[in-house]
C-alpha cells in the first residue's frame, strides 16, 4: 500500500499541484483546506507525512504543527511546511513548533519530491 501524505493548504491551486505531483510519484493523498480541517481528518487518514502551508484561516500552519505533535500517535510524523522566501521568522517558528523541514515557494515538482524523499525515505 502506498504511503499516504496529507497536504494542507487554503489555496486550491497549490493543493491541486501538490496532490497531482504526489499521486504521479505513487503516493496516496489526502487534502485539507486549513489546520482545523487537517486535524479533523488526521486520525482516520493513517497519514505518514504532512505538507502544510503556514498562512491559513481558522488554524494556521504553526498551530497545526503544535497540535499534531501533541498527539502521541503523530509525535514523530514528518511535517514539511510551505513557506515563502520572506518568512524567515515564520520558518523558525515552525521549526520550534516541531516541523521537520520546509519547502520555499515557489517550488517545482522535483523539488517537492526531493524533500519528501529526504524526510520520508
Amino acid at each position: 500500500m502506498p504511503d499516504t501524505i496529507m497536504t494542507v493548504d487554503d489555496s486550491a491551486s497549490i493543493r491541486q499541484m501538490v496532490s497531482f505531483t504526489l499521486k504521479q510519484a505513487g503516493y496516496a493523498v489526502i487534502e485539507a483546506v486549513d489546520g482545523q480541517d487537517a486535524l479533523g481528518k488526521l486520525d482516520s487518514s493513517a497519514a505518514k507525512m504532512i505538507i502544510t502551508d503556514l498562512n491559513m484561516p481558522n488554524l494556521d500552519g504553526i498551530g497545526l504543527i503544535r497540535a499534531v505533535r501533541a498527539n502521541p500517535a503523530y509525535r514523530f510524523i514528518p511535517i514539511v511546511m510551505l513557506t515563502t522566501e520572506s518568512q524567515a521568522e515564520k520558518k523558525q517558528e515552525g521549526k520550534d513548533a516541531g516541523a521537520t523541514g520546509w519547502i520555499v515557494k515557489p517550488f517545482k515538482p522535483d523539488q517537492l519530491l526531493a524533500v519528501i524523499r529526504k524526510v520520508l525515505g
Partner: peptide, 30 residues
C-alpha cells in the same frame, strides 16, 4: 485576510508560471 489573499496569489502565481503576477504582488504583500 488581505495579506493572506495577496500571499496566496503571489505563491500560487509563482508556482504556475505567472511570474509577473508574483513579482508584482510581492511588494504589495510586503
Amino acid at each position: 485576510k488581505i495579506f493572506r489573499a495577496m500571499h496566496t496569489i503571489k505563491g500560487s502565481g509563482a508556482m504556475f508560471g505567472f511570474d509577473k503576477v508574483a513579482a508584482f504582488t510581492h511588494d504589495i504583500e510586503t
